[in-house]
Design a protein around this nucleic acid. Structure first.
Length: 556
RNA sequence: GCGCCUGUAGCUCAGCUGGAUAGAGCAACGGACUUCUAAUCCGUAGGUCAGGGGUUCGAAUCCCUUCAGGCGUACCA
């Protein structure tokens, strides 16, 4: 619809130019928007105002020239007007809206799917929490956003792969092993001095108990290094299992779990450093190896290999991202907690130094979640062991409600998640408002048809649909039309919350309509047309919720 | 100090790729259930878009600046 309108305006411009009405062949980019107020038409353009300075003509005069040259062979425009400072408002004829309903029925779950991705391969890495403790609520936000982002991209024609980067090498795993081992000793009544940097959560004691059940007092006598090593492996495996389970219960499944350790084992870290050395991007200072990231826009150079010859986490990350691009991904997306933002520049520097285009690398920063209980902040620290686990929240509020809360806010806004509030107001959650739409529609349809998924695909022609002439009905169809654009914008700006607000808007239009007009009226033809409309609404609601990883309900 | 994010109704937040009179939900107040599900709807009230300056036909939106809050500024991961 918008494309058609855009073409009409462009044609009009060309025609007017040929006639000599405009001094220049240059034209502004045509923008078409939906005015907030209905009296401003279905669509409007500011093209005349934007052209004013270019042509040195009054906007209203330009607008008039545009209108004088408009050709509308399909008759989609009912009338036009020039308003305000020079807006051109278009009123679309009702009959032009109805084909959208047919399209929805025809395409079903695929309605709204776009192909802006054109099959390009995208890797989305998210969560990637260290396997040193269970997932907490902050990880949940990243999980929800990453997952939905992947879903949206997929719906837009990208070939998406979800990946979790597993930090299973390095010191924190050793610390984990030591923490567990110390708790293990405590179980046997040994007095231990529990160091500050060890993990203090309850789950460490649980794991220690498991090891006690398994190995009895064997490790009390064993070599400490051996015992710690065993504890580390055992604990990391167990925690990872828990992470996978929690994510799965949250509705998130990964295509690939990428092990940091594998980068060491396959020599990819050394390889990446060697590659940089050959390109002279590495120098030695104070016994360490430095990457000249400042050459590529970073604030300063960064160490990749420490004095003690160990490689840094950054070195792993360079190798990891090299590997990502070598696997043939056209676009690499990261979802990170905002506390990692300082890391972006150096990684972008690395990607450029590797010879890849940093435009194909995108980081989505998700602001932190402030966890509250009755308005009182709860400190969250894995080490201090004071945090609320994701699985606890999911258990209390439900997967869908928790996802919705995470997704109902822009990811760059800090999120206050009040546990008591989330529980107490569960019936006020907009999720139920949206789900109620599909439940209501299902209920209506089941009263008329045995099969709730009636297919009307070829049953209705446009003339039958023309019975839908209430303003509320036209508003709904217009809104249904905007679904695809919403999805595309959500992908383009990496803003999954746009889908949520779209669905709330559509739900609001429906509930309003439902209260004002009876769908199952005595007029048989009108009734069928309205059911046809309702069914289309349900298709889009279901589709939208599906993108969010949330179920559309048949019953409340 | 520097960098990133945030500041919009009493509360929680949309709106920010510049558009017309700044919007929802909750809370408050008043209405609508013998009805296709009231988990809904309708109405009333509520605003110095943190403050100041600038850019222009037009600024919540862009630029500068001040203030407030969060986060980050490792040879940690």
């Amino acid at each position: 619809m918008k494309n058609k309108l855009c073409k009409i305006i462009t044609d009009s411009f060309n025609q007017a130019y040929e006639k000599g009405a405009f001094p220049s062949a240059r034209s502004v980019e045509i923008e078409i928007e939906e005015p907030k107020k209905a009296e401003h038409g279905d669509f409007s353009t500011n093209a005349a105002m934007k052209s004013a300075s270019l042509y040195k003509m009054p906007p209203k005069k330009i607008a008039q020239i545009f209108l004088d040259n408009i050709k509308d062979p399909d008759g989609i425009i009912e009338r036009t007007e020039i308003a305000g400072a020079g807006f051109i408002n278009f009123f679309i004829s009702k009959k032009s809206w109805y084909p959208i309903l047919k399209q929805i029925h025809k395409k079903g779950a695929l309605y709204g799917a776009a192909n802006i991705g054109k099959g390009k391969k995208v890797l989305i890495e998210f969560v990637s929490a260290n396997p040193t403790g269970p997932l907490h609520i902050g990880h949940g936000r990243g999980a929800a956003i990453g997952d939905v982002f992947a879903e949206i991209f997929s719906f837009c024609g990208y070939k998406v792969s979800r990946e979790y980067y597993l930090n299973d090498a390095g010191r924190q795993i050793k610390t984990l092993g030591r923490s567990v081992f110390l708790r293990y000793k405590e179980i046997f009544g040994k007095k231990v001095d529990f160091p500050q940097d060890c993990y203090k959560g309850e789950y460490i004691i649980d794991i220690a108990n498991k090891i006690k059940d398994l190995k009895k007092d064997e490790f009390l006598k064993a070599e400490e290094d051996e015992a710690v090593k065993f504890c580390a492996k055992f604990a990391a495996d167990m925690i990872l299992k828990g992470i996978k389970r929690d994510l799965s219960e949250f509705g998130v499944e990964f295509d690939n779990w990428f092990s940091e350790r594998s980068l060491y084992e396959t020599g990819k870290i050394e390889g990446a450093i060697k590659g940089f050395k050959e390109k002279k991007h590495i120098y030695e200072k104070d016994g360490a190896l430095w990457f000249k990231s400042s050459l590529f826009g970073d604030e300063k150079d960064r160490v990749v290999s420490k004095q003690n010859k160990e490689t840094t986490y950054f070195a792993s990350d360079i190798a990891y991202h090299k590997d990502k691009f070598e696997r043939g991904f056209d676009k690499v997306v990261e979802v990170w907690g905002a506390d990692h933002h300082g890391y972006i520049l150096r990684l972008k520097a690395a990607i450029q130094a590797l010879g890849y285009n940093e435009e194909n690398f995108q980081v989505i920063l998700v602001q932190l979640v402030n966890l509250l209980r009755d308005g009182v902040p709860i400190a969250m620290s894995t080490r201090a062991g004071e945090f609320v686990q994701l699985k606890e929240v999911v258990k209390e509020t439900g997967k869908d409600a928790a996802r919705f809360i995470f997704l109902t806010r822009h990811h760059e806004s800090p999120l206050d998640f009040d546990l008591e509030l989330a529980k107490k107001r569960s019936s006020d959650n907009p999720l139920y408002y949206v789900q109620y739409v599909s439940a209501r529609i299902s209920s209506i349809i089941s009263k008329e048809h045995d099969d709730k998924e009636v297919s009307f695909a070829n049953k209705y022609d446009i003339s039958a649909l023309m019975l839908l002439k209430e303003p509320e009905e036209i508003s709904i169809i217009k809104n249904l039309f905007l679904f695809q654009e919403t999805v595309i914008l959500a992908a383009k700006f990496a803003e999954p919350h746009r889908i949520v607000y779209y669905l709330i808007e559509l739900a609001s239009l429906f509930h309003n309509y439902y209260n004002k007009h009876k769908i199952l009226t005595d007029d048989a033809l009108l009734k069928e047309a309205r059911i046809y409309l309702a069914q289309a609404i349900k298709i889009v609601i279901k589709s939208g919720l599906n993108l969010l990883g949330v179920k559309a309900l048949e019953h409340m």
